[in-house]
Design a protein around this nucleic acid. Sequence first.
DNA 1: CTTCAGATGCTCT
DNA 2: GAGCATCTGAAGA
Length: 198
Amino acid sequence: MILQQAFYRRDTVTVARDLLGHYLVHVVDGLPRVGRICETEAYIGRMDKACHAYGYKRTKRTEPLFAAPGTSYVYLIYGMYHCLNFVTEPEEEPCAVLIRGVSPRLNLPPEFWGRNRLNGPGKLCKGFSIDKSCNSLDATRPPLYVCTDLADVGAAPLPGDDAPFSVQAGPRIGIAYAEEAQEFPWRFCALDLGGTIH
DNA sequence: CTTCAGATGCTCT
DNA sequence: GAGCATCTGAAGA
């Protein structure tokens, strides 16, 4: 099934952990590009200095964070990479989960198959052709969504994809400015799906 | 394996 | 004008 608003309308840390193992889908030119989510991070505006909407800071950029749970939030970072998030918690609570890594499953360009080709928010967006045109979409339906099974995109399940996996938590990446929030263990890795925390 | 510099443009002050 | 939820390639250990 496709994850619906009720899935995202929950505690952000819980959603970040629960997204692991599910399948990110972006339909491009009629073909679903699919990867299995193996790394995420939680951002919580009301108390998290690493969140763009810390202290309910509302600007043109952060506007999607205040929208309905299940909305996409895509922004440009360092002038050349995009980052994909899904908005969580009820409307007006600016929170989101950053999708940091997936392992390739379907219809990805050849250069994105193999180890360490889709681990990292910038690489992942490149592989899935995700840019600002994907910002502020309803991500509970095509072209951009997350589903629980490969059967949901009409593909056969992969042997081993139904096996349990272990989750590791650790501090988030690239937020040295965020003072005490640096240490929050809000990064989640599915170790057996290719994720790594050092 | 590690560190390090540079690329590049949008957003907010 | 400063800074940024990153990545790559080159060089060193």
